[in-house]
Design a protein around this nucleic acid. Structure first.
Ligand code: ZN
Ligand code: ZN
Ligand code: ZN
Ligand code: ZN
Lengths: 132, 132
DNA sequence: ATCGCACACGTTATAGCATAACGCAATTGA
DNA sequence: TCAATTGCGTTATGCTATAACGTGTGCGAT
């Protein structure tokens, strides 16, 4: 999915996520946008829905939060499964791809005739700085 | 973590999950146990906390649900990362392990000096029966 | 032009998931 | 016996997400 021009609300939500140095919950985003007229969760969720669809934002299932894609130049929907390493101390997220992992999971699903739609890989732990 | 004898509440919750043919939310478990004296979510969550610790139950982060371990003979904590394929139509879950995937992810984290504590791999899609 | 449609938006209400904080009872080990 | 630990029950609260309704705007087809 290519990203068309963002609407006002979508752009506001995206900017908040881009400027954040870690994942944000929908309600945190809402709070940060109250000065811009946001009043209800749905305004955030509806924008997030589109941003996820366009592939410019990712949802972290294990922490119910959202993060701007770390590979703005590429199209994250085009290069396989996206994996995340999430620091439970400082909240920083590393986004990466591993084609061999994709391959193995694809092989497994093919073997089981399972039709994969969306795959989540999230590693929680401590980043280098926080593990010291 | 080896599983000591389960307490009454833990055993009740575990039996519900074992008998279910798919993952259950904490509140669904609660409803199924009202006849056994359960009245509040915390009774379920506290039991789940222990069952997760013992490795006999898994949490599916992407659907906020819990499932009994599919490998009762083994100790799921001992053989690496557990992965799940979750059918979005019928709700059935396939649990599996892939050492090569573990390896690749471990290599990546080692390279980044990221200390992994808990890794989630969840594939959502359609099982063979539902994809037909 | 105006009708119909798609889409974004705003609002209120509600549903679904999870934990805080208190107190009590049973167990255990010093 | 005393303190610490663990499980349990209850009430209240907080966090996450969606349903349902209505409004307005742009845009192509008739
Ligand atoms: Zn990305
Ligand atoms: Zn960190
Ligand atoms: Zn298991
Ligand atoms: Zn199915």
């Amino acid at each position: 999915m290519n990203a068309p021009a963002l609407t006002k609300n979508q752009a506001l939500v995206f900017e908040v996520l881009e400027r954040a140095d870690g994942p944000l919950s929908a309600y945190t985003i809402l709070d940060k946008l109250r000065d811009h007229g946001f009043r209800a969760p749905l305004q955030v969720y509806r924008a997030l829905e589109k941003l996820l669809e366009y592939g410019v934002v990712h949802r972290l299932e294990s922490i119910n939060a959202f993060v701007a894609c770390a590979h703005p130049e590429q199209n994250c929907h085009s290069h396989g499964i996206v994996a995340f390493a999430i620091c439970e101390s400082c909240g920083h997220v590393l986004e990466f791809h591993d084609h061999e992992v994709d391959h193995r999971l694809m092989n497994w699903t093919r073997g089981k005739k399972f039709k994969a739609e969306k795959t989540t890989i999230e590693i929680r732990g401590l980043c280098e700085a926080c593990a010291a």
